[in-house]
Design a protein around this nucleic acid. Sequence first.
DNA 1: ACCTGAACACCGTTCAAGT
DNA 2: ACCTGAACACCGTTCAAGT
Lengths: 188, 188
Amino acid sequence: MGRPAQIDRAAVLAASLQLADEQGLVAVTMQAVADRLGVTPMALYRHVANKADLLDGVVESILLEVPLPDPAAPWADRLTALSRGTRLAALRHPEVFPLLLQRAAATPGARRVRDVVYQALREAGLAEDDVVQLERLLATATLGFAASEAGGRFAAHSTEQLNADFERLQTMLATTILQAMEATPHVP
Amino acid sequence: MGRPAQIDRAAVLAASLQLADEQGLVAVTMQAVADRLGVTPMALYRHVANKADLLDGVVESILLEVPLPDPAAPWADRLTALSRGTRLAALRHPEVFPLLLQRAAATPGARRVRDVVYQALREAGLAEDDVVQLERLLATATLGFAASEAGGRFAAHSTEQLNADFERLQTMLATTILQAMEATPHVP
DNA sequence: ACCTGAACACCGTTCAAGT
DNA sequence: ACCTGAACACCGTTCAAGT
């Protein structure tokens, strides 16, 4: 016993993501992933439980790829930076991104992003209930747009148009936050 | 020749949708759909080009299921009615709904819903460019929420909470429209 | 401990053949 | 015109066996 490992979980997930980016989600089969790693399909089962677990891992790795904004920046800037970073991650991995809407938002990668939003909204002076509800709204609007764009629902539109759409979405979300702030009694 | 048809395209799509609702999207195989229709898998290929076409057809049938609001109602009411109808369609078919974000919005079913929004925004007095851009924003926000809810991203939350979230989303969208109207020079 | 060979049940799709 | 039988290449997954 004690055979040196040829692959590990990270390598399996990286190969899967690369394959999806290059040839589409349907090309991500256990055999194709194994091929890319120079290994037989059966070897993967020591590192992922099954194919669903493999896809969960890929989704998680995209989430971890979203850059967190500088904590020293003003809260509003942090929110737009995070939103833009999410959109860019979607454009980098259009084949996989739509899966983000189909997994429970309870993984470390999801929490990591959500906590940035929580923190920003708290600094904006919102009540805790508002913070939690608004985070869900901001997240679904952003993810919905990013997934639509990546998934091809907007195939007919130009990049310029989609950039303008995204910026208008940002404005809409900022307005919603401002209104929530105005409705919040604040301590002086 | 001239053998009486046992099945048609509508029957294939209906059986597929029913199967997805009852046993999940993965259960929708050509063999399972054929079984449900009392036919062999190969018979399906006379009515759908392939499996992708079958899924496209299922998505389209969900879109056609969204009820169109009474054209006599005020435009704002029509928009919220349409949005609620979309959400309900998602909750009826949670397994398939996430696919809506992955198909080009260029089918008759998609156009049918979009035209209701166009008409309402025009009645609100918005300029044509605004109409088109706002429709995309309203649609992605609504679809993003509905797909997230249906796809299970909110699995941890109560129905009451999600109802409240959805209503707040409606308010957010209504505010965006109002702001666009205020920024529009109108003829008296 | 880690990887492989062989095997199983199932998948989508084709094509020629039946009625 | 519509459906079927037989066949093909490919899937995910298991289990015992090799090093």
